[in-house]
Nucleic acid binder design. Structure first.
Lengths: 199, 199, 199, 199
DNA sequence: AATGAATGAGGGTTCATTCAT
DNA sequence: AATGAATGAACCCTCATTCAT
């Protein structure tokens, strides 16, 4: 059975594919992967159900594309903020990274959890998330290693990443009325500063 | 004829219900809520498909029960560890809490994420998780407030909780080969100590 | 994915399964395998679409069962006619076999071709048909070998079988107005007699 | 806007149409009519899916053309072998016809069954096959009637045709390891000779 | 209280056919 | 004449839920 999946080259095609991915991204974000059906995706994208399978092998394939876009367009871009680290001071970089992470989480609300929860039933999703965290840690370790001579830099960076992630998530959902997020922002900044500044 | 959901009072009934919940717990943990079907739950529980609806209104109702059990049997018990805080020193408590959190995560591997990912499509699930975190923060703040006079105790406790959670999760999955988890354990302990010890 | 296919033991179950197979048999016979859909089978059987998959893994699985029934209930029974061969004379046996083959073809009109045409896309179907012909040849050779000492008995029997088949098919469809089937019957009988009688 | 089906007159057009039919012929032969889709036909033909509908009304229309080609290019040509019948002896003609029939079956393997199985769901296909057999019988009867004065010539010719067909099919698939096809060839030849030679 | 057969709406996917270019 | 993207009805199959026993 010779599945022919379109590799869109023409402008029209590219746009159709983008419409489908965008619709899927939005729906996965709103109600999750399993609560979204392909008819809904097509409808939201303004196309027929059939053409979805002209661009994607199956529903999972759409999800993988959404995941890639999420990773490469939302997640990885934060890494460039570390380019300033050589010239500037750490505190500014941390502030900018925190701001960016919070913003990314807010804009992309639920998609992270929607995709990450698939980790347990889809090993490729798991692999991509692990790889992403590995990459981020490696890049940041690399940037810092010249400047900050601390023991266990890998562990420190990874932990910092986890904390940033956790905090951004906390901010995005903002469920706890008793939390002053500005205060928490300060606490997080201190923690991360401490992770690298002293030894 | 309105379906009557059994409130089991007899021993036999209680056990049947427990078998169903246990089976659901295990399956949700292994493959997630949406990849589990009720026939499978019944089979794993060793009961008929029909009787499941004698104890639960619907599939979601089983999930809510699983969630309650997870929260009350796995999550909340960690709170008692803070009872020692008056007599002992903080460092020991932190160590024990971290150990307990890691163990809880390891034993209950995927269930947290499986349930938490439903947050976005089920507001009651969301409410329960928010409530849980509120409760934990409140209790710990209460315990600590007599002894540790720091500003923003609520934010500190909540942040500490997030970090513990994030770290326990990290340990449970242990996907990153380059991480020495003992080292990270020490870093986390320091961070939390710092959050309360100094001012 | 734990497909549970019912092995019906209760009377009710056995009847349901039979209704499904009978409906499928009729429909495959009338319009062929590919022109029959599972909803139609269920409808003709007077059951819901879902239950079909309680008894069969998939549509092909129904077809395999239909094939087995065809082979074992229609085809193989002809073999018992050869039991008389020891005591009686060959000519009578041939007559009875021809009559039986024609009747079987008439009663089961198109099913043979409907199933046999799947030979090319389903190797198990192919295997079953080959096996069937092998078995028939073997059995008949066995019966005859004591009595008729001719060379190349295997080839003779197999050829006879082909001719009987071909003729029964011809009779069943009776498309050719210029053919006197009684005459043809006599010709076929002579041919087969000649295959064994003389040397 | 009524679809206009091209009656190709230009060379280019004729070739395109031929490519489509050839592709369809091959695919029907390999996997059958229902397992072949139009996209596949177009791809194999090296044309676009759309243009297929420039030359054919629908998928069935392609099949009818394939059928016509099969009948006229593969089947009917065997008839010319009977032209020799006046001058030569019958035995030689039979040998040549058998050889030709076997070769035709081998070269065109599955197409006969693929097309013939459509008989039951498409009356035009049925008609064409009946017509073909009628024609063959008529022609052969005509050729023979001058020379061989036997009773029931129609039945004899038709039966001979069936046997040849059946045997050619047997040879083409050669599924039965215990058959010596040269021996069978001889048996078939004798049978047919006997059908006409004596009376 | 329990069984497991039965229901039927809904999901993912295919494919003959049409249409804009 | 030709392309290949697009359509949407129809197909196979699943599964939460109900029902007869």
């Amino acid at each position: 059975m010779p599945e022919i999946i379109r590799k869109p080259v023409q402008k029209r095609s590219i746009e159709t594919k983008k419409k489908i991915v965008d619709a899927a991204y939005a729906l996965f974000s709103e109600v999750g992967y399993f609560n979204t059906n392909t008819a809904e995706i097509a409808k939201r994208a303004g196309v027929s159900t059939g053409i979805v399978y002209g661009y994607f092998k199956d529903k999972r394939d759409i999800m993988i594309e959404v995941l890639d876009i999420y990773i490469n367009s939302v997640y990885r871009p934060i890494l460039v903020l570390f380019d300033d680290i050589d010239g500037g001071n750490l505190d500014d970089v941390i502030t900018r990274v925190l701001d960016a992470a919070i913003k990314a989480h807010q804009d992309n609300a639920n998609i992270h959890e929607a995709l990450h929860s698939l980790t347990h039933s889809d090993s490729e999703v798991a692999r991509k998330f692990v790889e992403l965290e590995n990459d981020i840690t490696m890049v940041v370790v690399d940037k810092l290693s010249g400047k900050y001579r601390v023991d266990n830099l890998g562990e420190r960076v990874h932990l910092a990443m986890n904390i940033v992630q956790s905090f951004a998530h906390e901010c995005a959902f903002d469920h706890h009325s008793y939390i002053d997020y500005d205060v928490m922002f300060g606490l997080v900044k201190n923690i991360i500063n401490d992770l690298f500044d002293k030894n």
